[in-house]
């Protein structure tokens, strides 16, 4: 039974309300039940027992940013492939060759990224 009506998604909404209800109830409950004895030292951020220095909102390695940018590119490619994969049998050999060409372009870019050492973490 494959239909695609908005009503098919209604149970997901029910599940969302159940899950959100559970999360909010537990959060409120733990807030009300737990003891509250704050002190200045207790509220300092943890740094292995020594006094914490500065703020954690520091610059960090550019590698993480590069990974995220590359992820966006490649994930869009992956999404392009889903409609093709669903209709693979109908498209037959024509669709397969088209996708091989697409993948070759993708792999040329991928090869370039590896050669430029964008993914090396040494």
């Amino acid at each position: 039974m494959e239909t695609n009506l908005p009503v098919d998604y209604l149970p997901i909404l029910i599940q969302f309300f159940v899950a959100a209800g559970f999360v909010v109830t537990t959060m409120v409950l733990t807030h009300l039940v737990g003891p509250k004895r704050d002190s200045k030292n207790k509220l300092e951020s943890f740094e292995c027992g020594i006094e914490s220095v500065g703020n954690a909102r520091n610059p960090f390695s550019i590698k993480y940013f590069l990974t995220a940018i590359l992820f966006v590119l490649f994930d869009v490619e992956v999404i392009f492939m889903y409609p093709w994969a669903v209709n693979f049998r109908e498209l037959g050999i024509f669709g397969f060759v088209e996708m091989l060409i697409f993948m070759t372009f993708l792999l040329v870019g991928f090869f370039y990224v590896i050669k430029r050492k964008a993914l090396d973490w040494e």
Partner: peptide, 24 residues
């Protein structure tokens, strides 16, 4: 706002998105 947490979080994010491509 803790250095260990920040490092853990960006590691988690970059690991999850990297493996999501291969999974897809």
């Amino acid at each position: 706002n803790n250095k260990f947490s920040l490092l853990g979080a960006i590691r988690a994010a970059s690991q999850n998105i990297s493996y999501e491509i291969a999974m897809g």
